[in-house]
């Protein structure tokens, strides 16, 4: 197969993965972004990192685990390469639920409370809300399963306490 054809196929596969996991990308970005513009920035960055890593993805872990890792790493990552972003890139995942006003009241409250957690705790609670098994959360985060359980329990307690304040 010619390199160009192979590249084309690679891109098609990547587009399919993005389509399949756009909900994950959206939810992870919405946990970290503050407002629509930042949301678009986060989505762009996640897609860029996914594309960078796509060529070297060898299936060592489940595709969903990989997508979560890239998306969470990008949002948790503290060094954002703003300067390397092309100025003309206007890539957004235009979801119908992007506006805060569209969110259900409980969800809106949850976002407000989650905004007060640190970045790694936000990642954990997002994975728990997405009903990922503890073993997968441990794999995504790189901590032990027991540690995941303890942390999630503490985060839930913290969220409850914060909601009662």
């Amino acid at each position: 197969m010619a390199p160009e054809q192979s590249m084309e196929r690679n891109e098609e596969e990547f587009a399919k993965v993005v389509e399949q996991y756009k909900a994950v990308i959206y939810k992870v970005c919405s946990m970290y972004a503050d407002g629509r513009d930042e949301m678009a920035d986060y989505c762009q960055e996640v897609l860029m990192n996914m594309w960078r890593g796509w060529g070297s993805f060898r299936g060592e872990c489940a595709l969903s685990t990989w997508v979560y890792r890239v998306a969470l790493y990008t949002c948790v990552s503290f060094v954002r390469r703003k300067c390397s972003r092309p100025r003309s890139m206007a890539l957004t995942i235009d979801m119908p639920v992007a506006d805060d006003g569209d969110r259900a009241p409980m969800l809106r409250e949850l976002y407000r409370l989650i905004g007060r957690l640190n970045r790694l705790d936000r990642a954990l609670i997002l994975l728990w809300l997405d009903e990922r098994p503890y073993a997968e959360i441990a794999e995504i985060m790189g901590i032990s399963k027991a540690n995941v359980a303890v942390k999630i329990m503490r985060i839930k307690e913290r969220l409850k306490r914060m909601s009662e304040e």
């Binding site: 756009k22 909900a23 594309w51 890139m89 890539l91 995942i93 639920v97």
Partner: peptide, 18 residues
């Protein structure tokens, strides 16, 4: 709701990421 949402345009995605 997000899964039922708008499709990411593949052409745009390809151009941008490349």
């Amino acid at each position: 709701r997000v899964e039922r949402g708008a499709v990411v345009p593949p052409e745009m995605l390809r151009r941008s990421v490349r």
